[in-house]
């Protein structure tokens, strides 16, 4: 039996929770890009300490469960004086975790940039930092876009993990309603649709970007 009343009553709560999921997703993607970019720059910038810092970061993030990382961040933040910030902890943990994969994706993209492009930059007197931001990274991002899109759809599907630190995102909202109503299908069907809507909007955006950037690679 499909309980239409339950279905319609859940919609407002789920819509609010979907907004939380969306915000969490956006934060995670931004943090992942930030950590990934920083880490790959450290790794490839001829600085030994930077290299090892970045390699260690990648190994730790790839070698431990995301759930454990989330707990470490969630219980670690209060030690730094930041209390009661479940959303921040979740965004930080997922962003840090994904940043390790972003590092590796960008590294492949960067190693694809011909040395000649760097020499051209050096020959006009461009600084190292500017060469990174104006020559290397724009090209690396373009080449890496399909792989990054893939990584970020995985990030979206990691966001329900935030429920373990009591962030009321889409999945957790569903669990709460379902526990009260003893009925699941009316709740989790719209939840699935919610994720698909976010994922599809994101991949469409990425494909649009890819098409625009492909202009100059063909």
């Amino acid at each position: 039996m499909f309980n239409t009343e339950l279905f319609f009553n859940s919609v407002p709560t789920l819509a609010t929770a979907a907004v939380v999921t969306f915000k969490l997703f956006v934060c995670c993607v931004c943090l992942s890009l930030m950590f990934g970019t920083l880490s790959v720059m450290l790794q490839l910038s001829n600085n030994r300490a930077g290299y090892w810092l970045s390699r260690t970061y990648v190994s730790v993030m790839r070698g431990t469960p995301l759930l454990v990382q989330l707990f470490v961040v969630f219980f670690g933040l209060p030690l730094l004086g930041i209390k009661g910030q479940a959303f921040l902890a979740a965004a930080l943990a997922i962003g840090l975790n994904s940043g390790a994969y972003t590092t590796e994706i960008l590294r492949a993209g960067i190693q694809n940039v011909p040395v000649g492009h760097l020499e051209a930059a050096a020959s006009i007197g461009m600084s190292r930092l500017r060469t990174w931001t104006r020559v290397v990274l724009p090209q690396a991002f373009t080449v890496s876009l399909p792989a990054l899109t893939n990584e970020f759809t995985i990030v979206l599907k990691s966001t329900p993990l935030a429920s373990v630190v009591a962030v009321t995102e889409l999945t957790y909202a569903g669990v709460i309603i379902q526990a009260r109503a003893f009925s699941a299908i009316e709740v989790f069907l719209p939840i699935a649709v919610g994720y698909i809507v976010i994922a599809l909007s994101f991949t469409q955006l990425a494909r649009w970007l890819e098409r625009r950037l492909r202009d100059f690679h063909t």
């Binding site: 492009h117 020499e119 051209a120 930059a121 020559v135 724009p138 090209q139 373009t142 100059f216």
Partner: peptide, 11 residues
Amino acid sequence: MVFQSFNLWPH
């Protein structure tokens, strides 16, 4: 400097 392989920035 002008290079044999041009080395223009494609983006």
